[in-house]
């Protein structure tokens, strides 16, 4: 029998993260679910009706300007031993966080309800970033030119 899944749910700076946590609990009723929240949004005891553990991060926001804080957060995440990591925002920082958490599986739950897998290896992360960077810029340029050149005729 496989070990009980341990899910780390990184809520980030999302003020209303409870619906996401409730949905995670509904999907994985038997998993150990840990909510990871910034100090400003630290919830009260009621959260334990939905999650098993609560991890309050040291800061609200992390950036490369605070390398020691980032390192500490990564160490704290690793120490929890997550098997599955979920984030609510599709930023590079959160992709890196999913990677350094040591989880073997990571997902992005975006605010439009979509669920996407995230890379959990450095090579996958770099490949994905390059693909998005090049493809995204080309798409931007293509759509911009299209919107400028192909015009909507004046309506009658």
């Amino acid at each position: 029998m496989s070990e009980r899944e341990h899910i780390g749910f990184y809520c980030g700076l999302c003020p209303d993260f409870m619906p996401a946590l409730r949905e995670a609990r509904r999907r994985w009723p038997d998993a150990r679910l840990t909510a990871i929240v910034p100090p400003s949004y630290a919830p009260d005891e009621a959260i334990y009706a939905v999650v098993d553990d609560l991890m309050v991060t040291g800061r609200d926001a992390y950036s490369p300007l605070h390398p020691l804080a980032v390192r500490q957060l990564a160490a704290d995440l690793r120490a929890r031993g997550f098997s599955h990591f979920i984030t609510l925002f599709r930023t590079t920082q959160q992709r890196i966080l999913a990677l350094v958490s040591g989880a073997s599986r990571a997902e992005l739950w975006d605010m439009d309800s979509r669920i996407r897998p995230m890379e959990v290896t450095w090579s996958g992360l770099i490949r994905g970033a390059m693909r998005r960077s090049v493809g995204g810029r080309l798409r931007y340029l293509g759509l911009f030119l299209y919107a400028c050149i192909i015009r909507v005729p004046r309506s009658r």
Partner: peptide, 23 residues
């Protein structure tokens, strides 16, 4: 419509490299 189409692309376009569009 033409102004609004350009506004749409300028607003969302910079987020394409991060998949930063909304659904």
């Amino acid at each position: 419509p033409n102004r609004c189409r350009r506004c749409f692309v300028r607003f969302w376009g910079p987020g394409f490299p991060q998949e930063g569009t909304s659904g």
